[in-house]
Design a protein around this nucleic acid. Structure first.
Lengths: 215, 215
DNA sequence: ACAATACACTGCAGTATGCAGTAATGTCAA
DNA sequence: TTGACATTACTGCATACTGCAGTGTATTGT
């Protein structure tokens, strides 16, 4: 049982689903904390059936059959056990940041494009969460008794997306003064920033970093 | 060529390394934006050699040989091309958040343990970055001309880790009032939070969420 | 002199992804 | 009512990636 297995099992604990429905539901929730490919969401429930944590049965819709997966008692026991084993450390995958780290190979325009994409992707994610929340207020939560969990979970995403957007603005302000992506090294500005972060302070809206013009 | 290939290739662009050295360097940089297993960091350079983006030669250290990988001109061209192709959207993997989303299967203690682990893991990551920055101030950057990039990159990690720590504090404050992990649903408090985040505001230090006692 | 730690890998089983392909059903508009 | 296009519902296959166990040498500290 991997964490992905438990994630799917947890969805099955809510109600029976087809693999297709799991992909839809994962896009609304799992995605923000445990992103998995659509392909995998089709394979995982089969494994759960093999392990005895779920059962499957076919339903007929006209000429087409669909496989519905349902959690077993054994599956519920496994889920309960899961809650008391140690968690894995968090990991962020952000190609745009990787491009910044190795920005020397491209132009400032390339770097700005990466920032733009990072911003667009983040805005889209934020919008999905905001829409979800607006839906909750309209009573559209599919499992109303779970709203307290979904909402606290969502607060994290929102704070995170806001931070990313603010940071991108900051980063654009910094790179705006760069003549090129290369060889700037430990200049005055960079040293100031290094001191600030080495002391554990925030660089966003830090008065020490204010610029004369005020962007 | 996957993004992982380009990440390793970018490291090779700095200087020749053994796979072992790549694992060390990845732990100081790549890890924060493109985490890859140690195992993979041994396999990837071989693939780069096959593709003609790197070469390898053996060096002797006593009875032991080490394989040193070096970027080729073709590899540098590939790197430059990489800077202008679209980036993948960011993805966060956080098992602790997954435990929150499905906290109903465990106790409040289980949930608090997940928060504790999340906090410890985050603190360790922050400390590594702070140490790195302190080193830069002592002139310990292995590629001094690249400091501007490493530092701007690091600002993101620091802001992010601070946010996570602040959010955990907030989440602990919220769950402290819960009688159990289950069935609290859309109560008054949750509705207030939902309204705040649906309107795009921050929940951290939000005066609307102040509690009488003041934690 | 010995132990512990760092260096330098490899094989293998299993997990996960991306893409292409298949096919039926539902929806809307000309 | 026919055709186009989106949605539902999958599978196979090649490739990417991980975790673990195993192997052996070199260096450092006690």
């Amino acid at each position: 049982m991997t964490t992905s297995s438990y994630a799917i099992l947890a969805l099955l604990s809510l109600r029976p689903w087809t693999a297709y429905e799991l992909t839809q539901q994962a896009a609304r929730s799992l995605r923000y904390a445990w992103p998995k490919s659509e392909r995998h969401l089709y394979s995982e429930p089969k494994k759960l059936v093999e392990l005895g944590h779920a059962t499957t049965h076919k339903e007929q819709v006209g000429k087409r059959t669909r496989n519905v997966y349902e959690i077993t008692d054994q599956g519920r026991v496994a889920l309960t056990e899961w809650t008391s084993i140690p968690t894995a450390p968090p990991q962020l995958e952000a190609e745009a940041l990787l491009r910044l780290l190795f920005a020397e190979h491209g132009t400032l325009e390339d770097l700005n494009t990466a920032f733009d994409e990072f911003e667009t992707d983040t805005r889209e994610l934020r919008q999905s969460v905001v829409d979800l929340m607006a839906g909750y207020l309209e009573g559209e939560h599919p499992f109303p008794e779970r709203t307290h969990l979904s909402v606290l979970f969502a607060t994290f995403q929102l704070e995170m997306f806001t931070l990313i957007e603010n940071w991108i603005e900051f980063a654009r302000g910094e790179t705006a003064d760069w003549p090129t992506t290369k060889d700037l090294g430990m200049n005055e500005r960079t040293e100031l920033i290094t001191r600030i972060i080495a002391s554990g302070e925030s660089v966003l809206d830090n008065p020490l970093l204010e610029k004369p013009d005020g962007h």
